[in-house]
């Protein structure tokens, strides 16, 4: 593989991790979030600061980074999750703009200059770059997918599904809406934090613009395109939405037009996402391999 392909693949893996986190919030618990890039950014900045200013290694910083992002997710989730649907969407957009502004204007976070000189990840004294770093990101993606799979099979996950379908009915079955929505929010933001840390040590320079509102829209698009609430959907969405602009790079002028067209076609013909219920992919799969369950 050449360096360019490795770079794109690494970005796909990182974005997949973040999109999986968003899927926990949006797909499993049904709480719309248009500010997920904020938590991606909090993870990236936390890891960058802990490794450049506090002198920690990536590995010692990582548990802290995940904890910090999850904690901020909890603190911002408590007021946000009091509102529903479109109001929640607007609130989360607000969170995204505020967090971005804090990174941009507070000198501690490097201001407009961002943070540079972020060290590479070392693993047993070997600096990881190129292919090894891609493998590291894929390993974390596998871990995240395992956590997602475990969550969907836990009572907590089932409680989130019930809340997504009908909050009043779920509450009448002993499910505390606040507790389980917050749990999904913390889990989702912690995954974004992990993705952020991997991003920071991959790019080695980050600035506020990397975590702006359009990034949140892109992340939500990945989840919707792949299939909300499915296991593999966000990853498939990330593969398509990160690699498509690269494939269409010669058509620089109109690539966002193609990208928009793709989303509109999806909404019209595959509203459940590529791996969603009764989607084309699933129907073709069951035609080709009768009796076997398609991946979801």
């Amino acid at each position: 593989m050449n360096a360019y392909v490795v770079t794109v693949a690494t970005l796909v893996a990182i974005q997949s991790i973040v999109a999986c986190g968003l899927n926990v919030v949006v797909g499993y618990a049904g709480q719309i979030s248009l500010g997920h890039a904020a938590f991606f950014g909090i993870g990236a900045y936390a890891s960058a600061l802990l490794t450049t200013k506090a002198g920690l290694t990536f590995w010692t910083a990582l548990p802290l980074v995940i904890a910090i992002t999850g904690l901020v997710g909890l603190l911002l989730g408590i007021p946000s999750l009091r509102v529903r649907d479109d109001f929640l969407a607007i609130t989360t957009i607000g969170i995204n703009f505020i967090v971005e502004a804090v990174f941009l204007y507070v000198p501690f976070f490097g201001g407009a200059l961002g943070i540079g000189g972020i060290p590479r990840v070392t693993f047993f004294h070997v600096k990881m770059k190129g292919l090894p770093y891609l493998y590291l990101c894929l390993a974390f993606l596998a871990l995240v997918l395992l956590v997602c799979r475990w969550f969907t099979r836990s009572w907590a996950g089932l409680a989130c599904f019930a809340l997504r379908e009908d909050e009043t009915a779920a509450a009448s079955m002993g499910i505390s809406p606040v507790r389980f929505k917050l749990l999904a929010f913390v889990l989702g933001t912690a995954m974004a934090g992990l993705g952020g840390a991997l991003y920071a040590h991959f790019m080695r320079f980050i600035s506020a613009g990397d975590f702006s509102f359009p990034v949140s829209v892109m992340l939500l698009s990945m989840v919707v395109l792949g299939g909300m609430g499915t296991l593999w959907g966000p990853t498939l969405g990330a593969v398509i939405l990160v690699s498509l602009p690269e494939l269409f790079r010669p058509l620089l002028e109109i690539r966002f037009l193609i990208y928009t067209l793709l989303l509109l076609l999806m909404i019209r013909f595959q509203p459940g996402g590529l791996l969603g219920e009764a989607s084309l992919v699933r129907r073709v799969f069951s035609r080709l391999m009768p009796g076997k369950e398609a991946p979801r």
């Binding site: 099979r153 009572w155 409680a159 599904f161 079955m173 505390s176 389980f180």
Partner: peptide
């Protein structure tokens, strides 16, 4: 979902499988 009414009372117990 309704059968889990006892599970949802504590966070730790809600991490078991359904």
């Amino acid at each position: 979902v309704a059968c889990g009414v006892d599970r949802y009372r504590s966070l730790a117990r809600s991490f078991g499988g359904w």
